[in-house]
Nucleic acid binder design. Structure first.
Lengths: 146, 146
DNA sequence: CTTATTGCAAATGGTTTGCAATTTT
DNA sequence: AAAATTGCAAACCATTTGCAATAAG
């Protein structure tokens, strides 16, 4: 049983839980995102999924997102970015380049992570909000765009 | 000299630095955002800026954003949110309701803030990125949507 | 067989833009 | 006067959707 097989199993589980099916298009998109290892936009995904029309990729991503297998990132750029959800990978955050819009995944010190979570929960509670997730994004200019 | 006058002065400074003008529409939009005290969408702004066409509000917001007076927030909702930039206010973060898309400003403990900044800078440096800003967003369901 | 998915083309809708008229400096 | 801004309508374009055909369970 390879890692990739494990990944497919996890996706299948989540799709079935939502009454959806695990089709070849679904698997193809999952593999593209897994291989990339960073958030991709639709224009980046399309060339890697030959013969799959754009609308099908959009639909696939929506289904996968609703199943909790994929996350949609909307930073200011005109195209949304997609990546495997944290449920299938690990908790992480993002570095975003203002110029080219590229996004890199990063990990933070668990201690800081925990402190932020506690502080956010406290603040959310005070505002009557029930939190289940948070994101931390850093913005600047990447080596290529500096 | 009132706080509002100070605000207008700050906006004027930033507009002039970009060769732009401080028109009545600009002031109107700034005041709407200042009065709201939370990020607003275009549909929320329009009724508060009577007789100003939608396209002018969009253009005004773009000019103000380029001058650093306004920030555009793009969380997954279909409408962007706009608020006074941190340059004109204070550093803060956001609580976002998944159901209605509303956004609330929150402050974090300065110690945690500092720890996060240090950690992000470290991580960014390792990836060859020069960071100048970060955001922390918490997602959940607000009191009204729970 | 029943229902989700696919592919194509067409529609949607938030946001941007061209242009002539109008302000601001 | 020179240049930015405005208002209107029209264009843009990433994303969504209707529908008939197909494939998955």
């Amino acid at each position: 049983m390879t890692d990739r097989d494990d990944l497919h199993d996890e996706v299948l589980l989540r799709l079935e839980a939502k009454g959806r099916r695990f089709t070849s298009n679904h698997r193809l998109v999952i593999d593209v995102l897994a291989d990339a290892g960073r958030p991709l936009t639709i224009p980046e995904i399309l060339p890697r999924t030959p013969h799959v029309p754009q609308s099908s990729v959009y639909r696939t991503l929506t289904v996968l997102e609703e199943a909790g297998a994929v996350s949609r990132l909307t930073m200011g750029s005109n195209h949304a970015h997609f990546e495997l959800s944290e449920q299938l990978g690990h908790h992480h955050h993002h570095l975003v380049c203002r110029a080219c819009g590229s996004i890199v995944d990063i990990d933070l010190d668990p201690e800081i992570e925990q402190a932020v979570e506690a502080e956010l929960s406290r603040s959310a509670l005070a505002h009557g909000l029930r939190i289940d997730e948070h994101s931390i994004d850093a913005f600047g200019y990447c080596a290529h765009c500096s």
